[in-house]
Structure formats: C-alpha cells, structure tokens
C-alpha cells in the first residue's frame, strides 16, 4: 500500500519522541552486552574473584536497566498525537 509522504525534518517534540524510541530500542542491546559480559570474566576457581561481588554486579546492573526502562516507559506510552503514518513508517526500520 502507498505510504503518505513524510516530512524530511521534524519539529522539536516529534524529534525527541523519535530519539526516545531509539533509546528504547538500544536499551536491550546494552542489556545483552552487560549480561553477556561475565562470560569473559576470569574463572572463579583461582580464588581471586568473590562470589559476593559477582552477585552485586548482577543485581546492580539489573536494577540500573530496570530504572532506565522505567524512565523511558512513560514517554513511550504517551499516545501519538502526530499522524499515524509517521509512527508506522518509523516502525518499519525495526
């Protein structure tokens, strides 16, 4: 189906909204990186690593991811007051 032409440049508010969505898309990528990172750690059997610090690492990064998601969520949930075609076109990249 034919998509209506979209403007090349956006106003300030729609622009921020787009970047917010970019952030929402990037957040899980960052999360995957942080959660996969431990496979590069030195094995614990040498005795240098402390299990407690590992526990703290995981729960801290986990909490940070949750807080970031909580910060993004209200802006993302706002109903789109721009044209419907705008949001959908944006979505195609995903």
């Amino acid at each position: 189906m034919k998509r209506p032409r979209r403007p090349l440049f956006l106003g300030r508010i729609p622009y921020r909204r787009r970047r917010l969505r970019d952030a929402a898309r990037l957040l899980p990528v960052a999360g995957v990186f942080l959660m996969i990172l431990p496979i590069l750690w030195t094995p614990a059997d040498g005795g240098q690593r402390l299990l407690s610090s590992d526990v703290i690492w995981f729960f801290l990064t986990w909490a940070v991811l949750i807080l970031l998601a909580a910060a993004l969520a209200p802006g993302l949930a706002k109903p789109d007051e721009t044209r419907p075609g705008e949001a959908s076109g944006d979505e195609e990249e995903g």
């Binding site: 898309r25 899980p28 999360g31 995957v32 959660m35 986990w62 998601a69 993302l76």
Partner: peptide
Amino acid sequence: GLEFITIYLGPTLVFIGWWW
C-alpha cells in the same frame, strides 16, 4: 551457582526491549 539468574535476565531483556 549464579546460573539461575539467566532464567530471569532473559525475560528482563525482552521486556525492557518491548519496543522491538
């Protein structure tokens, strides 16, 4: 050990990436 945490980290990643 800590492997159990992956069972909850996986869904966490899916949910914070809900826009996808």
